[in-house]
Design a protein around this nucleic acid. Structure first.
Length: 229
DNA sequence: GCGACAG
DNA sequence: ATCTTGTCGC
């Protein structure tokens, strides 16, 4: 486990944070298909908080994309670097997530984030931000539709419906388990939407949420427990 | 102006 | 995100 400090140039206000998003947004790559599902490695990242002690813990868990076996994992702990503000989640999570990714003993391959990428008020959510900062292919898989709208997809696993910001498709509601609430998939960096959905399906053989985020969620909670007095 | 709002 | 017991089901 590694410890992190908030970077000295980290935005201190919401206005500064939005300006950073507006500047970095132009560096997102949307015209690559991304790695094929079921091959290579897939990494889940997630974060847990203890606002009481101002502590944040992040985890990165690398899975073999074919077997979904854990290949490597790393954690990082730090101070909370930004309050939770809808639309600015990345500034709360990224420093610690970057530290966890850096601590991995192997390349992460595709990174699956717990939240959104393109589906964001300024089209630059957590997954997009992490992708631009690392250069890695990233996608976002969220549990809630945020401010977006969608029609319920068919009940069968694999059914999808557009996730809409007005008439613009910013992601997809994807049914990963028959009859269970869908997850909300959006593109981060260097992956297209069809492929992002295909990866999400490959990562959900049994549960609604991807194995990557399930593993990372369990690990960051454990890291937080062990780091908190 | 008011409410809603990824995690 | 987090606060939180038991409970129903495989």
């Amino acid at each position: 486990m590694t410890t992190v400090r908030t970077p000295p140039d980290w935005p201190a206000t919401e206005e500064q944070a939005r300006a950073v998003q507006d500047e970095l947004r132009g560096r997102v790559v949307l015209d690559e298909p991304g790695p094929p599902p079921g091959a290579g490695r897939v990494t889940g990242v997630d974060v847990a908080y203890d606002d009481e002690h101002d502590v944040v813990a992040a985890a990165a868990v690398v899975l073999d994309a074919a077997s979904l076996d854990v290949v490597a994992e790393a954690t990082a702990v730090g101070r909370i670097s930004f309050p939770y503000v809808p639309g600015l989640l990345a500034f709360r999570e990224i420093p610690t997530v970057l530290a966890a990714l850096d601590a991995l003993p192997c390349p992460p391959g595709l990174v699956v984030c717990d939240g959104y990428g393109l589906a964001h008020p300024r089209r630059f959510g957590l997954a997009s931000h992490l992708g631009v900062l690392t250069g890695l292919p990233t996608i976002g898989v969220a549990k809630n539709p945020f401010t977006f709208t969608y029609d319920d997809p068919g009940l069968a696993r694999g059914s999808t419906a557009p996730l809409l910001a007005g008439t613009e498709e910013v992601g997809r509601a994807l049914r990963t388990r028959a009859g269970v609430k869908p997850v909300f998939v959006s593109v981060g960096h260097r992956v297209d939407l069809d492929n992002a959905c295909a990866h999400t399906l490959a990562l959900t053989p049994e549960y609604r949420l991807p194995e990557t985020t399930r593993r990372a969620d369990a690990l960051c909670r454990r890291a937080l427990r062990e780091a908190t007095p």
